[in-house]
Design a protein around this nucleic acid. Structure first.
Lengths: 343, 343
DNA sequence: ATATAAATTTAACGCGCGTAAATAAATGTT
DNA sequence: AACATTTATTTACGCGCGTTAAATTTATAT
């Protein structure tokens, strides 16, 4: 590699002995040029280490190769994990993903959408805040930019939705808990930020109805995205007041359950499927830390890979179709029950 | 707000009654224009909702307003948290941060640096992979792009380093553990990826020497960034073989400790500061989940805010200074001991 | 009222690349 | 070998904004 600095594509074209439009074509799709010229270009590329100016590239292009990925809360390892898979898929497909976290704030979510708008991305994968989202703002954004919603649905917004089937989660845990012991009560936040929480509550009620059992819902206070602490405080209160309606607790999500288990330990309440234990606790999401809780958490796992794959695939279809799909697909993936120590 | 679409700055200039160069000046620094014209521009901005094309903006500018933030592993809530604070600081200062995770892979770290290079950022905040980093690659990058290293130092690379003082972490935990009970052994991975791990081991050995105590280091196998599982497997083995040299365990970091506690629970080994407990466990980092382990984890906390503030401040100085600082400062922040249930 | 400084306007060029049309060359087919 | 087809070259324009220099207007100070 020579240390000669190359200013622009013209210079590189001269040095590689290929015309500039062909070089341009190569960078937009290496397979679009004859293999012999491709070899020449790549040889020169090794020799001179030239990279086209991305700003100049994108300014005059119909569509950039950028993809925006937006999650509501990146400090939640669940979103970090799914973002990781999404990023990888985009890179493999030749796109340049950029990752954004709304940090649970509506203002930031809107600001991110503004930023994305000016990035002129080929498409966007958006997991909205949920109840805290500015629906109209997102709606307008989705009209302008090809967007797939994931994780948390907003009815009718975006070209498609890809997520997990909350009924599949809850039906499996309820069925399992009921079959292997006593009836579960449902432990959740009073005002959940995420619409999945509502779907899960409804699924619980529906399952209990089908099984001809009386449902019990335990609602705890707290706002924001610090679910573990909220779950812990709620559990401390419920356990202390002896207000648990049943000896089996089904938490709406793993992060609440992590807090719940922490409270149990603090109060000396033993948790496990063992007969000698005081209570059982189960949950949903298969959070990356759920296998390291004490005891390890029985939960229902997202099909991360499928959700990510299908979201990205749908986005690529959307991009290929020019930004519009005929009908708004809502694709839900089933959960997988993970039996561990806690229930 | 009228729904008229504005194509470019020229059009917006006409509509707002201000000349284009002045509009351009305004977007580069609103305070650089007279307040009366600023008012006119901002009135028109509300009316027409125009945003300059960022690609056209950046292509012909010496320096963009972009700042790159790179962390080794975003699924680790510690990095997610510090990234959150860094992002916020950059936004508040009028910059546009973009976040990248190396996902523990050298290839990806290098690819991210390539991407950043073509983004022509004003500056970069880089937490390198550590031992897995391609030193020469990073060195070359830092020569071309104003870069501040944080969390994990590479001697002589980058314009400055901002991180935590590992000796401060370990000295406090060792002193505390020794004072309140028996001597701690040091639990760590055999081949740690992060240079902080080595500093912590040395700090442990030094502290034990000062206290005239015999050091014991327990090294466990495992590679990669799945520290919890590595800690768990290591602990299962050590506990099963009864190879723990002392009844107090000081883990190199919280993620290992989370795995350790999980193993203890599985094997029925009780953990806590209480006399009746089998062992005590402490650690370092004050990981976001360390307060929710069972029992909650005694640990030494990073001064997140100070590290983030100082890293960003130093970067801004670096940018103002035109990309070069006279001497490479290495700034370390002290830890704060957090006493919880585990030790 | 005048001198001076500061801000704005006008006019124009350049940045690096996308893209299109016409032409030329290479490759494939019979 | 003649033809059709694919691929590359030449030429030229445009994208939207940064930036500069000179001319002009406006604000501030004397």
């Amino acid at each position: 590699m020579r240390h000669q600095k190359i200013r622009n594509m013209d210079e590189f074209a001269t040095l590689s002995g290929i015309s500039r439009p062909t070089i341009s074509k190569y960078f937009n799709d290496p397979d679009s040029v004859r293999s012999s010229t491709r070899d020449k270009i790549e040889a020169a590329l090794k020799e001179y280490d030239y990279r086209p100016n991305i700003y100049a590239m994108n300014q005059n292009r119909r569509l950039t190769k950028n993809i925006g990925i937006v999650v509501p809360y990146l400090a939640d390892p669940f979103f970090a994990e799914i973002a990781r898979v999404l990023e990888r898929r985009c890179i493999d497909a030749g796109f340049t993903p950029s990752l954004y976290s709304s940090h649970g704030e509506q203002g930031l979510e809107n600001a991110i959408l503004d930023t994305l708008r000016s990035l002129k991305p080929a498409g966007v994968l958006l997991a909205p805040l949920g109840r805290a989202s500015d629906r109209k703002y997102i709606e307008q954004f989705c009209r302008d930019v090809p967007t797939i919603l994931f994780d948390s649905n907003i009815e009718g917004v975006g070209a498609a939705f890809v997520g997990s089937d909350n009924f599949s989660f809850v039906s499996q845990t309820v069925e399992y808990l009921n079959r292997t012991g006593n009836v579960p009560c449902f432990f959740e936040m009073r005002d959940p930020v995420n619409p999945n929480a509502n779907k899960r509550r409804h699924a619980y009620l529906e399952m209990m109805r089908r099984l001809n059992l009386e449902p019990h819902i335990v609602k705890i206070d707290g706002t924001g995205w610090g679910f573990e602490e909220i779950g812990r405080q709620g559990a401390l209160k419920v356990l202390h007041d002896n207000m648990l309606p049943t000896k089996t607790v089904l938490c709406s999500n793993d992060r609440l359950a992590i807090g719940f288990l922490s409270a149990c330990h603090e109060l000396g309440v033993t948790v496990g499927r063992d007969e000698t234990c005081d209570i059982r606790v189960a949950s949903h999401d298969d959070h990356p830390y759920s296998r390291f809780t004490c005891p390890s958490l029985t939960t229902a796992a997202h099909d991360y890979e499928s959700v990510a794959d299908h979201a990205v695939e749908t986005l690529f279809q959307l991009i290929d179709a020019g930004g519009k799909l005929n009908n708004r697909e809502e694709r839900l993936f089933a959960a997988r029950l993970i039996m561990r120590g806690s229930a």
